[in-house]
Design a protein around this nucleic acid. Structure first.
Lengths: 398, 398
DNA sequence: TTAGTTTGTCTATTGTCTGAACTAAGTTTT
DNA sequence: AAAACTTAGTTCAGACAATAGACAAACTAA
């Protein structure tokens, strides 16, 4: 049985106020009358809710707009300067941090490279990053409304980092650590989940409701958005698509399973493919995705074949996901998106040839728009949404 | 942006009334006081809602129950005789129909075998089945509240049957056909979805919130329950796990894909395995799952090996699903459940050895309890829920 | 008998949404 | 330029559902 909450007039008001606020956020300029039309709420109700939001500095009123045959409407817009959010993408060999306004516009941004740091050193880097970011926030009604951190690992429902293999972190309660230090709400989220959210809010996923965001970096992670909400599974561990078996008699994976998808369709797979070539000219370099793309641009056929193989395997896995989820949109994100020109043809070909016709109906396959910024933008946006929700809860009685 | 509805006092009342009704349905006997305690609603609110439900004949009041140190409580219970529901499992070579009360108790049941019927003949059989079932309903306040039909195929969001390959049906609007004929609300649902719902309401899935129900028959279908709600995907086509590739260089499947899971882990796989044996004693019979189980019971090692192979492949696919969904419970249902004794060991062994520790945490793997009845029970239960929801909507203003 | 507990009803109060009247400020028609 | 119509936004009485708290009923325990 659904663990339902009870309903009363306060809940009604809070929900309606959120509805009005969402309407203003979704439409950069809108009038009271149009809100009433679109939500179905009474004009009077909208008026009073809007006036409260104005007092709370969450929206602004500008002068009159264009008339449509009668009195000119008063233009409202979301006050995206009411506070600032910090988003940090804690990568394996970098930290990307940013300050955004409440609309996800980047106001300040900083990138540091890190290599083989201990847990304590990483934490120290993180503190320095956040300190710098805080120094760059401006005066505003609500100030710093929260800090979000995206991590390449498993985050459980209480937002504790259970396992981040590439960082070699285990059981870290980063949320508590940062909340104690900075005294603002902290959100910890898996990088794929954050990326999915960012693409939906700000990127190529705008307007879609059921999205699979595939973050292909060293490994593969998937952010699942179902009916506009992030699906995190029973304990928060969903989206481990990377360890889906696609080759029953395939190689062993470090996860204990065999034939895992990410062995064949990730950056890791690309690099291993290059190694396998045993080409003199590629032997002694510390190879990276960027080098590979440069070679592909020079029409290096061997390299292109390897990328295309990854494209085929991406197609296989994506095909599985389409059959399972029947999503509206699949977004391929993270670093691999840079290889789009060589990946896309093989990938889409595989899907078109191996997918059921009804699964391809209304299905959109896209590459990410925000690329390297998606994780940080996503966690910053999570903080904003949590802030707005908490704010409305606070100003409404109980 | 979430396409939210607006909230007002009527919605509040309707939701709270549903909350009270759900509480009575979930607990066979309960008092007003306990409902108030458990829901958090005010005693007076509960009293008035209960009294309305009593007038509407949806619940019954019995005499006083046991005192706990004060006045004896008045015992309430759900009036499961307020109406009757019809559930039909339209299988490939059978039709199973039943009349249930509002609690899913089977009051009458009928089974017919069908073979190689045309569309029109099948429809005629279906009519006869439903006519017989209707003749066996009793007098009650609300009468026949709905008809549900479970089909082995793809049902879209408007509940039209897009494709039922084994029935050779395409684009059949069975809902409209039956509603025109019987003038009661009709629910059409995929058999795996219906089975999932039945196991959660009445079977081994009681109390779980995130369930994967795997219906393994001739093919494989999966019913996905997320946060107590059936997930149907963008167009209603989710759960086509059967066509997930687990063997990249595997055989071609009729769906157009290669190495599909259901080629290796279904009843079809079992039968093909037996054929491959080319054993004299098995050559001339029309082989069925029942024969196979009889042989396994006689300790026929060749047969047992084949079943165990299917068990292993089931393990592979289930493992994938666990990584993807992180469910609370996986239920293996439909006909293959009969082979549980031989399937379970290999299946669980594979999962234990190939799954990440955190994915196995809080994970329950079970075999279905309702076996052959799950689909019909599920669709009957869907009808009940739709009826109750519509009823409350009707009696509340707007 | 008395005091205390639990169940359930009743009533006044609170607070929200709604509809309708109303003001304000524009456009279009005559 | 005046009149008629449109559209935007405010105000206010009315409806109604939940709540708190008083109250009655019915029981237990001492």
């Amino acid at each position: 049985m659904k663990a339902n909450k009870t309903w009363n007039q306060y809940v009604v008001k809070q929900e309606n106020k959120m509805l009005v606020l969402d309407m203003v956020r979704a439409n950069s300029t809108i009038s009271r009358a149009e809100i009433a039309n679109r939500t179905g709420l009474n004009k009077g109700t909208v008026s009073s809710l809007v006036n409260e939001l104005l007092e709370e500095k969450l929206i602004n009123e500008f002068g009159p707009g264009e008339s449509s045959g009668g009195r000119k409407p008063l233009i409202l817009s979301f006050n995206h300067h009411a506070g600032y959010s910090i988003g940090v993408d804690l990568g394996v060999n970098y930290i990307l941090g940013m300050v955004t306004d409440l609309n996800g516009n980047i106001l300040f941004e900083k990138h540091s490279s890190i290599h083989h740091l201990t847990y304590e050193e990483t934490l120290e880097e993180l503190y320095q990053m956040i300190d710098t970011l805080i120094a760059h926030t401006q005066e505003s009604p609500y100030g710093l409304i929260g800090i979000g951190v995206g991590v390449p690992g498993i985050v459980d429902k209480s937002k504790k980092i259970l396992l981040a293999p590439n960082l070699k972190w285990e059981n870290v309660d980063l949320k508590m650590i940062l909340e104690n230090r900075y005294s603002v709400p902290v959100t910890i989220e898996n990088e794929a989940n954050a990326g999915a959210h960012a693409e939906r809010r700000f990127g190529i996923g705008k307007g879609y409701h059921n999205i699979l965001y595939i973050s292909v970096g060293i490994g593969i992670g998937v952010g699942i958005i179902i009916q506009d909400e992030l699906y995190v599974g029973n304990n928060g561990f969903s989206g481990e698509f990377g360890h889906m078996t696609i080759e029953t008699s395939g190689e062993k994976c470090s996860c204990g399973n065999v034939g895992c998808w990410e062995l064949y369709a990730s950056e890791k797979a690309l690099l291993r493919g290059i190694e396998g070539l045993e080409r003199e000219d590629l032997m002694h370099t510390e190879f990276s995705l960027e080098h590979i793309i440069t070679l592909a641009e020079q029409d290096d056929q061997q390299i292109i074949e390897i990328i295309e193989s990854v494209g085929k395997y991406l197609g296989i896995g994506i095909n599985n996901m389409i059959n399972i989820f029947n999503p509206e949109q699949v977004i391929i994100g993270n670093r691999i998106a840079k290889a789009q020109p060589w990946l896309q043809p093989t990938l889409t070909k595989w899907i078109e040839e191996h997918s059921l016709w009804f699964s391809q109906k209304d299905l959109q396959i896209d590459f990410a728009e925000l690329t390297t910024h998606s994780t940080a933008l996503g966690v910053a946006a999570f903080s904003v949404e949590i802030f707005l929700k908490n704010h409305l809860q606070k100003v409404t009685k109980i």
